[in-house]
Every structure is written in structure tokens, then in C-alpha cells.
Design a protein around this nucleic acid. Sequence first.
DNA 1: GATTAGGCTTCG
Length: 763
Amino acid sequence: MPVQLLKIVKGKFETPIPSHLQNEDLKHLQEGFDHTNKYFQGMVILSYPLTKLEDGTDFLKVVLQDLNDLCSRINSINILIYGKMAEDCAKVIRHGDTCIVAGFKLAKSPTAREDGRHDCHLEMSEEAGSAIYCVAPKYVYTSLNNLKDGTIVNLYGVVKFFKPPYVSKGTDYCSVVTLVDPSNVKLTCTLFNGNLDALPKIYKVGDIVRFHRIKIREYNGQMQGVTSGGFASLTFDGTVGAPIVPRTSSKMYSFMNDEQKMIEELRIWAASHLSVSEPVAKLSGVQPMLFFDLTCQLVGKAKVDGSSFLLKVWDGTKCPYPTWKVPVEERDLEGEKLLLHQLRHLTVDILVYDNHVQLAKSLKLGSFLRIYSIHTKQASGDGEDVSRLEFHLHGGTCYGRGIGVLPESNPDVKELKTFLESVDLAGSQNMESMSSVEFDGTFSNVTDLELHLQRIQQLPVTVLTDHQDLNNTELKTILNSPAPQQYRLRAKLRTYKPQKLYQSVKLHCSKCNSLQEVPDGEDFDFILQGSAVTAPNTELHSTSWYDSVMWTTQDQKQRKIAIHFVKHDEMLQQPEDTLLMVEGGTLKEIWKLTKRFKCVIPVRSTEDDLELLDLSAPFLLQGNIKYYGCKQCSTPKPIKNLSSIAAEQQPSWEPTEIAQVLGIEPLQYVFIMKFTLVDGTGALNAYLFDYEKFFQIPASEILTNNFLQQKMEMTMNALCPPGRKLDDLPWLECFIKSYNVRDATKHQVYYQIFDTTVAEDVV
DNA sequence: GATTAGGCTTCG
């Protein structure tokens, strides 16, 4: 059969190529050579529509590329097919197919000069005894729930998370991409390539990717994708109805109808199963203390110091807050001076740090960027009375922090360009007039910020939760009175400590009244590592009140991990209701378990029982919160006591109850701050000791909850706006008590705030 | 030819 469609089965042709035929390279296809028993193999990179010659003969032209010689300047050749063979071929041949052609006639190509292909073309027809074997690359795609360790697969996925390519500490760029598919399984892929272009061009969550030849490995008990030698990717916009245009650096890729259908299906699935990312922020919509992604154009850049670099960008909208300008040497600033001047009220300075510096330096002026996870921060410079909004791209790549360059073809860029052009047309005149009113302080367009500031200057930013009938006492009077007493007062918060709010969270033991720092993750990790040295004692596994499972890690350490699932009524409960005890786990594994299970108690085994770890480690993890016990006041009791809670009708696994049965005196998270209050008659330092009531933020949650951290920072900015003159500070209504502290040599009066809370509408 | 990183915000 002159035209034959071959299948590849297990890496070989299903029907073998006739054995007398031998492969010939493109460069050996020359006039004067004998090609009788030779074949040429290439991939279809172009296939023209079937036409008829003047004499009525069918004619088909296809272009084959030599896959073995992609580096040569000339690596493709025209194939001209005549008669019935042309007709047959047109039916089966597709872009991306591999074709084997034999029995051809070689002739000078009249178009070589224009099309830059081989000087000769190949003429083929049935009459001449030609043969074409066509191999459609049949890619098999594995769904994410069917991945096996050690395999190389092709797959599709919807991007659930990604880090735009960044410079790794090794030799390559790195991009981390987490995919999901309709099997609802996630796969995090770590992709490396020395060439930035070879990594997938993902611009937003929801984009769809097709990966070819990705290697699957097991890492930390989960499947992981990593780049293999032949890795290739296509990326598509994930929006339902958007044009299906693959983004790829590869000049050659197969893409056919099946693939189109796959993209459409995934788009529809994603639309109903993937949480939609938040609306894209514009500079006009930014708030202090936010992390956001910005699509913008680069108009200036400058080196600042070794670890930071400045990008001046704009998106055509005006930030409602006064913005921070990073001081740089005039000669260090790259960019068109006139443009920078014209846009000076619309550009913002973004300071990028550490690992982002190298990429930032390489950015081209005028290019369109998406900067991921910019942090806004309100701060005031030295001697300034207004606070300014700072934009930081901190070091590291957490949460996908990074910089991506968007091509001009990107729909968001097209929209932005149109918008920027319209801003430009409105004229710099507008900008000029705007800046002049800004300068003489008659800016009539009162922003939300200013309204907000006006409001907080009139009403107190804190209110009393009790004692409203009492009259205010001046600070001078309080300072001159003996302790202990209680007062209502009205004052301004001149300053507070610690300024770094994460330093204000401590652990408090209500029994011995001691305070201690919250241990950090490293301390915990260290204790876990120490306890993992001893293998779980299997004699303690699966008792009347818990079921145990154990496995050994695949890595070199061969670590043993045991999980003991506490039963209720002799049955296992739903994961979200389950308390489990874990032995030998790492910080990360334990953290993962807390995501799925209600409570996690890290334990180790002794000869005859399970026991809690050192009390420097949390005795319990629930959700995001680590619960610690007081070392002085706790007398740990047998783990078996937990079975009494498990036997309750509906075990609630309350941390206090767990602590009690385990003999643990729980430490409570508390905010400790020192407020310097002033009222014109005097100044006093009052301590704030607050579990939750004052800020209406649980101290236990703030260290792991970014939203709450932002809320806290905004609250403090409202109570004590940075850079403001004393007159412009808001009033606080507080209730304080004075108390005596005496030791052998000294007597002092201290003050503590209580029964006071931040006003509801402050944040 | 291995390495890079292996998601879960900095602390400037």
C-alpha cells in the first residue's frame, strides 16, 4: 500500500518498515546520489490544501522537518505528491505526524531561495513506486490520579498555583506549578531549564497546560513532577470561549482536534471546580497591607544596592495614597527622562529584593509585566508628616512571589495598552494640573483615605466595654495618685512597643503567670528530628482505642512513620473529626496532617507506652494553631487518658480538655504591648495584656493568619497613624488600672489597660 | 553531569 498509516506500539512500529530501506539524513539527499533503497523520515510542519494541477492531476505539498538535525540552518524539505497518492495522503496526514517517505525522485527545488528549505524537493507518486508511511504521534495522557513513581508521562492539568520562572540557586531557571484535573488530584511539578523560554508560559491561575515527557517521582509521600530531558509544554488561556492558542517556545509541536476538545473540557471543568482568583488589582484599588498581583508597564529601573532593585511601573490608574519614592542616584535611573517626568504622579516605585534582583535587572524598559504578590506597606519617612504607601517584592518565592514578562499578544496586555494610550491622550496637561493642586493642598477630590482619617480624628478609635458612667481622669492626676486604682481616660497613643507586631505575641501560663516567647518552627523541627531517631515501638500499635499504620520512607533515611488514629465507639471517625497521634513525622508531614485531620498530637514511643515529646514542642496541633504546655506547671499523664475523651458521645477534642487529661497546663497566646498615652497633661505607659478582646483578633491565630496580621497592622495604623503630628492623632478611650510592683530596692506603679476594645469601624 | 526546589508571603 503506497500510503500507510502506522501505529507505534510499545515504542516500535506496529508494522515494520521494509527491511531493505535505510534511513537517509537530510544533508545526504543530494542530486547524483542513489536513493533507491533509502527513506527519509521527518515531521510534518506544514501541509498545504489538496489542489489540482492544470491537467487535472491531484497535487499535495507538505513540508517535512528533519528531527535529527534541528540545529542546521536548513532542516526542512518540500515533498510534492501527485495523483491518487496526493488524495490519499491529504486524508491521513496531519501537522505533527512523523512521515517516512521512500521511492521518491529528487529534483532541484525552484523555491529554495524563497522558502529557505533544502535545495532539492522530493517528488512522489504511485506510478513512480513511491511509498509514504505516516505515523501519527499518539500521545497518551495520564490523569493525575493514575501517576506512578518513576514513570515519564504526558498530562494535562489546570494551573492551581504557580511560581513564575525565577533564577534558582543552581544553574537553571525554576518554576513550580501545581496542577489539578477532573480526578481532583493535585500534582506539584518542579520544572527546571537553563532557558527561560522553555518553561511553561503561565500567566495566571486557571491557565491550562499540557506537559509532554514529565517525570513522576514520589517525594514526601506524594507524587511530584519534574522536568525530564525531553520535557515540552503548551499553555492555554483557561477562560471558557477564549481562542485556543498554545503558548510555547517550541517551534514544533503536535496539536490536533483531540487536544482542542481536551482544552475545552478542562476549561468547563475548571470553571466550576477551581476557585476563581480574586479580581485583578489596579493601582487605584490598592490598600495598605495587601499582597496583590499587578499588571503594569515598566518605565524605569535603577539599582539600589546589592540586595534590592527598583522598578518604576504604571498601569494608567492613580494610587489613592501618597506613594513612596525610593531615593536613587540620578545616574542610576534608567528610563526615558521625559516619560518618567510626565508620568511621575502615576508611576509607583516597587522595590524588589534578593533573588528577584537578577531577573529585574534583565527586564526591558517598556515591557509589560505581571508582578506577583507585591506587598503594600504604610510607613513614614524621616521628618515627613504624611505616611506613604510602599511597594515591596520581598525575597523568596512563597505564594508565587515573582516577576513575569507578558507578551504583547496577551489579552490583559492588549487591554492595558489601549488603556495606557487613552491616558496618554488625555494629556500630560491633566497630570500637571492635578499635581499643582496636590501641592498646594487643595486637592478637592477627597479620597476614601482622607474621609477615613477625618472620621478617626473625631471619634475615639477605642471604646470601653464597661464603666461608661465614669468620668475621665487626666493623666497628670492618675500619675499623682497612689495605686491601686481604676480610671477612665481619654488620650492619644503617641507610640507603642513592640513596633514589629509579631514580637507582641507571647505565651502565658495563667497558673505560674510566666511569659515566654512563641517557639519557632525550627525548634519544633529539631525536636521532631530527635524523636524520629527512635523507631516506633510496634508492640504499642493498634490497641482498643486506636488503630495504627506504619510505613517507611522511600528516601535514603528509611525513616519510619507511625500514625495512630484514635477511634470512637470502636470505629474510625471522619478525618475532620479525627484525633491522631504521629510518631517519626517531619514538620511538613505533621503540617499536612493538620490540614486533613481535626487534631494531631506528636508522640514518641517508649518501651511500654506512647508519650508526648518535650514540652518545647506543641503537645497538640489543631488547624493552624500549635498548643503548648507550661514546662513548670505540667505533669504529663499517660496518653491512654485520651481514650476517656474518645469515649464521649461526641468527642469535641477541645484543646483545654485534651490538656487536662494529659496533665498539661496549657499556655495561652497573648498580645503584650506597651502603649505610651498622652493627653496634654502628662504621659504614661500602660501595658496591654490581651488574649482577644482588645483587638478582636485571637492572639492564638495571628502568627499563622495573614489576614489577621493585616488587620492588626491596619488597626495599629489607625490607632497611631505613622508620621502624624500629635494634634492629628486620634483619641483613645481607655480603662486602666494602676498596681504596685515592689522589690527590695524599688517601688513602682504600673498601669494596665482593660475593658477596652478597638472601635468597630476602625478597620 | 549533577544541581536547582520540593508552594503556604517579609520582618528590608
